[in-house]
Structures are given as C-alpha cells and as structure tokens.
C-alpha cells in the first residue's frame, strides 16, 4: 500500500519532469491540444447561440384558432384546455372578443379605412380566439390536423385559417432552413469530433514514439508496465490541463471582446451567456482534454510495452 502510494507520487513527479524537460514535444502537443479544445469551446458557444436564435424565431410564431361567434365562455375554456393537453403544444392563450378587437385596432391603427369599417358595425364582429404555440415549428401541421379531427371541429371551431396562411408559408420555409442548419451542424460536429480525436492522438503517438528507447530501457531494468505507463499518463493529463487553461483563456478573451452587434445578430447577449456558462464550457474542455490526453497516451504507449 505504501509502495503503491510511492509509485503514484513518483509517476506524478516524472510526468511533470517529462512535461518540463521535453520542451519541444510539450509545446507542440500542447498547441495541438489548445487548438482542439478551442474548437470544442467555440463549437459549444456557437451551437448554443444558434439554438437561442432558433428559439427566438420559434417564440415569435403562433397560430390563431378562431372560434364560432356563439360559443360560450365555458365551452371556449374547455376547448382551450383540450388544446393545451395535446402533445407538442407548448402554450395556449385565450383571447376574448374584446381583446381581439383591441388587438385588431392597434394592428390597423394607421389604416383609418379599415378602422372605420369596423366602427360602422354596431357589434364586435370578432370572436374568441385561442392562440396556440407549439413546442417545435414542425408540430403545427400535426396539431392543426388533430384539432380538425376532434369533436370541436365545425361546432366550436369556426376556422383555423392555417393551410393558406402566410404563417404556414413562413413555417414551411423556416423548417427547411432549420433542417439545413441542423444537417450542417451535424456534419461539422462529426468532422470536429474526428479531428479532435485524430490530431491529438497522432501527436501524442509521435511523442510516445520518441520515448520508445526510454521505454525499452525501463523494461530492461525491470520496471513494470504500470511503472512505465504512470508518468506518461500523467503527462497526457497535463497536456489536457494546460490545453484547457490556454484555450479557455483565449476563447473567453476573444468572445468577451466581440463587438455588440454580433450578439444582436443572434439576439442574445453573448458575453453574459458565456459568463453564465463558463464553468460548463471549461468543464467540457477539461474533461475532453484529460480524456484525450491520457487516453491517447495509454493507447500509444501500449504498443511499446510488448516483449
């Protein structure tokens, strides 16, 4: 037990020693690690920002369901709760005749002709409207379809004015754009993951290759596999740790010095987002860095441990 602890301490000591003494290897491996982890952090931020932007657009979309004029308030409420309970419905809003009229008036306040034609009528021509927002813009078709097949269709619901509406056209176009963006994100992620694993792994493999004589010598004087591996694993961890420190510093400096316009484009405050999620981003970088560093070391070194 005591010797195990001693070996562990010595592995740590020699891991640091390798790291400090092999300046060239350390610098080149750490640079690769920094680039990888920077890419990872950058991807995390952009990913979050673009999903914020998508949410933002999605939040602006909803569809109105106009109820028949003679529907009583209870019946309207009953219908609202029915819609609320449908799958994929995020929220509903009950708009009374009066509110509908107010909305109408504010919407067309610059069009006196239209307002006049409303005012000529003695009674409110508008009916109760239930405004529906879906979890996801792809869900609207399904929700409308379900409502049309429900017992409320024809009696309670006057019309859904969805198929031919401009909202439908916007939703369709937006869906296509989002599909495209998501495919792109997926491709970029696969590519990044591949590079993020392949490049550090190969760099560390080269490092271990340059240590092959040392490893052979250690074996000849009787070092066990664990005694040989220990320091290199520690060194791998150090690549991850230092890679994280440097790449996180670079990333945060860069993001926090972005002009504000960039944040407006994504309709978020980037710096506050980054500040709030700094811990998550750094943890992700650290986890990936250590896993990559130590994992690559372990894999790369095994081939020199035979015989």
């Amino acid at each position: 037990m005591r010797t195990m602890f001693l070996h562990l301490l010595r592995s740590i000591k020699y891991g640091f020693q390798n790291f400090v003494r092999n300046v060239f290897l350390t610098v080149s491996t750490t640079i690769v690690m920094v680039l990888t982890l920077f890419g990872l952090g950058f991807f995390l931020i952009v990913n979050q920002l673009s999903s914020n932007a998508v949410d933002e657009v999605e939040n602006k979309i909803d569809i109105p369901i106009y109820l028949a004029e003679d529907v009583k308030k209870d019946k309207a409420k009953e219908f609202q709760s029915y819609v609320d309970n449908l799958a994929n419905v995020k929220s509903t809003k009950f708009v009374s005749e009066e509110e509908a009229l107010e909305d109408f008036k504010t919407t067309y306040k610059d069009y006196p002709d239209i307002l006049d034609s409303i005012n000529i009528l003695n009674e409110n021509p508008l009916s109760v409207t239930i405004v529906v927002q879906a979890e996801n813009i792809r869900d609207y078709d399904g929700i409308v379809e379900q409502i049309k097949r429900s017992k409320y269709a024809g009696s309670v619901v006057k019309e859904i004015n969805y198929e031919k509406s401009s909202t439908k056209r916007i939703i369709d176009r937006l869906t296509r754009i989002l599909d495209w963006v998501q495919n792109l994100q997926f491709v970029v992620m696969i590519l990044l993951a591949f590079l993020a694993i392949a490049i550090p792994y190969n760099t560390i493999r080269l490092t271990m290759y340059s240590y092959r004589n040392e490893i052979e010598i250690m074996r000849l004087v009787g070092a066990s596999n664990m005694q040989i591996k220990g320091p290199f694993l520690v060194e791998g961890v150090l690549f991850g740790v230092f890679g994280t420190i440097i790449s996180a510093t670079l990333l945060f400096t860069m993001v926090l010095s972005l002009p504000e316009g960039v944040g407006d484009f994504f309709s978020t405050n980037i710096s506050s987002y980054v500040q709030q999620n700094a811990l998550m981003i750094v943890s992700a970088q650290l986890a990936v860095g250590i896993l990559l560093g130590a994992g690559s070391s372990a894999l790369a070194i095994n081939r020199y441990l035979k015989v």
């Binding site: 010797t3 001693l6 070996h7 010595r10 250690m218 004087v221 009787g222 070092a223 066990s224 005694q227």
Partner: peptide
C-alpha cells in the same frame, strides 16, 4: 530510477 522501481524510500 533503478531503486525507485523497487519501491525504495
């Protein structure tokens, strides 16, 4: 190093 691998103090 040769002593360390034997776990000497």
């Amino acid at each position: 190093f040769a002593m360390e691998i034997l776990g000497r103090s």
